[in-house]
Simulated scan of single mutants.
Amino acid sequence: MKHLQKITLLTVLFAILFSTSCSKDDDTSSDLSSVEFGFDQSTPPIDQSLINPMLNSTDQNAALIGSYLSTANLMTIWLSYFDQPAGAAAVDLPLGACGDNSVAYSWTTTAGTETFTVAYQICETSDRYIFRVFWSVNGSDFDQIIYAEESKGELKSGFMQLFATNPNAEAGSSVLLEYAWQENADGSFEYAVTNDEQSFSMDILVNADNSGTISYTLDGALFYRASWNATGTEGTYEYYSNGEVVESGSWSI
Rank of each mutant, 00 (worst) to 15 (best):
N138T: 13
N73T: 06
I253S: 09
T231M: 05
Y240V: 05
E234N: 04
D47M: 04
S23R: 13
E247P: 05
G99M: 08
L55E: 09
S199F: 12
I77Y: 11
T165R: 14
S42V: 14
L4K: 07
S252E: 12
Q182G: 05
A221F: 07
I77M: 13
Y224D: 03
G187F: 02
S157A: 10
I65Q: 00
I145T: 02
S250I: 11
R225Y: 03
V206M: 05
F82W: 07
S140I: 02
G99L: 12
M54G: 01
A111L: 15
C22V: 09
G112A: 03
T110V: 13
W228D: 00
N56G: 15
H3A: 14
R225S: 10
Q60G: 13
M75R: 07
E150S: 06
D209I: 03
D196L: 11
N138R: 11
Y179S: 04
L162M: 15
E36P: 06
I146M: 02
L79V: 04
M54R: 03
D186C: 02
Q41I: 10
L10A: 14
S70E: 10
T71E: 12
Y129D: 00
S49E: 09
D31W: 11
H3C: 09
Y240L: 06
D141T: 11
D100G: 11
T125W: 01
W251A: 02
T125Q: 04
G235I: 00
S29M: 07
F159W: 10
L17V: 10
F14S: 14
D209N: 05
T217Y: 01
F82Q: 02
E114T: 06
D59Y: 03
L4H: 10
W251E: 02
E244I: 01
W181R: 01
N210Y: 08
S188N: 06
G112W: 04
T117Y: 00
A221D: 15
C98A: 11
D186K: 04
I77G: 13
P53F: 01
S157K: 13
Q161D: 14
I214V: 12
L205Y: 12
M75H: 02
F18D: 08
S34R: 15
L177M: 13
D47E: 15
L69W: 05
M160Y: 08
I16E: 14
Q161V: 04
I214A: 05
Y120F: 15
P85V: 04
G139M: 08
N61V: 05
L93Q: 04
L93R: 03
E114C: 02
P53Y: 00
S151G: 09
T213M: 07
D127W: 05
I214M: 14
P45E: 08
D143F: 09
G232W: 00
D100W: 07
T20R: 03
Y239N: 05
A226E: 01
E150T: 06
I145V: 11
G66I: 00
A226K: 00
S215L: 12
